[in-house]
Amino acid sequence: MERLSIRHLEVRYGDLIGVADVSLDVPLGSVVALVGSNGAGKTTTLNAIAGLVSPSGGAIEWQGQAIIRQPAYAIVSKGLALSPEGWQLFVSQTVEQNLRLGTTSLRDRSRAAALFERVYALFPRLKERRNQLAGTLSGGERQMLAVGRALMSEPKLLMLDEPSLGLAPAVVETLYETLHRLHDEGLTLLLAEQSLELAFDIADYAYVLQTGRTVLEGKPSELEQNAQVQEIYLGIKSGDAGVGNGAKA
């Protein structure tokens, strides 16, 4: 019961299918990765969990309670927060104003001051730029702000959509060090990544998505040796990769 559980999730946009059949589990205290090429359904899956899109089928349960089709504000208040792809910040607002928006779901508003200090301790650069407009930040700083804003709701489970996308390697390294630290502090993470190396380095368990479906799952140490992952994720056929056909997950 202490988990996020998704069964046969389906999301349609009119006649288009964003997600056809995704199932996964995220136990509390774990780091779970969703990997797959662009268009595999990772973002749609996270958006459906977060209440940003309405599923057309399937089930989403959080700690034993159905949360499918609930509005985004209700999902956040239950302890799930999303740091979206592309950051989606209020660029005409300051860093601190963007962070404060993350506290709107808090039942105990007196927690806000402690949460600001936590975010500023994790991302000292945000503290230095707290009065600066979000639209003037660098890409790395915007990613820090997106993660920080999600943390301001004091989530039990943090979802991150392509956190490394478009960032310099040094910035990515710093960001993932922070994610490791958050996990060490007990935060559950559900991470969508195109980079297998980054995802498999931090995750306890991973799901491979292809054309809106969960097609493989397992521990990263198992999946990274799997010939099917090369074919599904990289488009390399087993024969092309020098591995015989018929490899199993």
Rank of each mutant, 00 (worst) to 15 (best):
L34I: 11
E162S: 07
R69W: 00
L167N: 02
K156C: 04
P169I: 13
S195E: 02
P27Q: 06
T44G: 01
E224I: 15
R107I: 12
P220V: 14
G244V: 15
L145P: 03
A33N: 02
Y233K: 11
D25C: 11
L24H: 03
E117R: 14
A170L: 15
S92P: 00
L106N: 01
G36A: 07
E154I: 14
F200G: 08
V147H: 02
V119R: 06
E193N: 05
S56C: 10
G14E: 01
E61P: 11
Y120D: 01
G246A: 14
P84C: 07
L160H: 01
A146K: 07
D21R: 08
E61A: 13
G148W: 10
R100C: 05
R118Y: 00
Q194T: 08
I17C: 09
V171S: 01
L190D: 01
S105V: 15
Q97M: 10
R12F: 13
G39T: 06
L4W: 02
L175N: 01
E197K: 15
A150T: 03
R118E: 10
D204P: 05
G148K: 13
R109S: 13
R213K: 15
G79P: 02
L190Q: 06
V35W: 04
S54N: 06
N38Y: 04
T211P: 00
L82G: 00
A121K: 13
